[in-house]
Amino acid sequence: MSIVLRFTPNLARHLDCPDARVAAETLHDALDQYFRQNPSVRGYVLDDQGMVRKHVAIFINQALISDRIGLTDKIDAGDEIFVMQALSGG
C-alpha cells in the first residue's frame, strides 16, 4: 500500500525532508521507513524516547493522530501523513 508523507515547509528551513511514498500499516512503521532513508529528520520529529516532540503535530489525512507515544495509529493505502509544527509554544 502506498502512503504519502509530507512535511511542513518550516522544517525545510533546517534540513532536507522531501515528500515520500512509503508502504506501511501503522504510523510508526511509515515514519521508521522514512527515517531509514532520511536519518537526520528523526530527531526533528521525535524526541530521545521516540515520542512525537511536544511542539510537533502529525495528521493522518485531516485528523490529528491519537497516539503520540507509541505511534500506533493505523494507516491505509492512499492516506496522507502530514508533519507540522504545532501552533503552540515554539
Binding site: 518550516n10 533546517h14 524526541d47 516532540r53 511542539h55 509544527q85 504545532a86 515554539g90
Partner: peptide, 8 residues
C-alpha cells in the same frame, strides 16, 4: 533549542 524541533 529549536522551539518546535528540539535541541540541535
Amino acid at each position: 533549542a529549536l522551539g518546535h524541533f528540539g535541541v540541535k
